Amino acid sequence: MKNILLPIDFKGNEQLLLDKAYEIGEKFDSKVWLIHVAAPNPDFIGYDAGPQSIRDSRAEELREEHKQIQGFARSLNRKGLEADALLIQGTTVDTLIEKTEKLNIDLVIIGRQTHGIFYKAIFGSVADSLVKKTKVPILIVPLD
C-alpha cells in the first residue's frame, strides 16, 4: 500500500482522521495525500461570481484552508511520514475519484458523521457516494 488519500473537510474532526492515516501509513510505509475539495467558483456552476468583496472573501477562505491543510501535512512529515497536501476546487466526489486514479491511491480514509434523513436528502453522503463509484478500498472512520 503505497498511497493513501485522506479527504479533509475542516469540520473540526481532522485530528482523528490524521491519527488513523498516520497509524496505517506508518505500518505500510505509505505516502499520505491530504486533500480538501473546495466548492467550485460560482461561475463554474452557472452563477455570477458576485461583487468583488465576496470574491475577496472567498479567496481569503481558500488561502486559510490551504495553510491549514499544509500544516496537517507538515505535522505528519515531522513524525516521519511522507505526506503532501492538495486543495482543489471542484465537485467533491468526482474530484476525489479523479485523484484516486491520478495518484494511484491504494486506500481512501474518510470520516463519516451520522446525519438525519433531511440532511441526507439535501446533501447526501460523500462516503456513501465514494463507496458506490470507486473500486479503491475505503476505510470509513466514524466521527460521532
Rank of each mutant, 00 (worst) to 15 (best):
L5S: 04
I8E: 09
D9L: 01
F10A: 02
K11L: 05
N13V: 05
N13Y: 07
E14R: 07
E14N: 04
Q15M: 12
Q15P: 01
Y22G: 07
E26S: 15
K27G: 08
K27Y: 14
S30C: 09
W33G: 02
L34M: 11
L34E: 11
H36V: 04
A39N: 12
P40N: 11
P40T: 08
P40H: 11
P42H: 13
F44G: 11
A49E: 10
P51Q: 02
R55C: 04
D56I: 05
R58V: 03
R58A: 15
E61C: 11
L62A: 06
E64G: 04
Q68R: 15
I69K: 12
R74Y: 10
S75N: 11
S75K: 13
E82H: 14
L86V: 11
L87M: 14
G90A: 10
T91L: 15
D94C: 03
T95E: 05
T95H: 09
K99T: 05
T100Q: 08
D106G: 12
L107S: 05
V108T: 05
R112N: 03
R112Y: 01
Q113K: 05
H115A: 00
A121T: 14
I122E: 07
S125E: 03
V126Q: 02
S129M: 00
S129A: 15
L130N: 06
L130W: 02
K133E: 07
T134V: 09
T134P: 10
V141Y: 05
V141F: 01
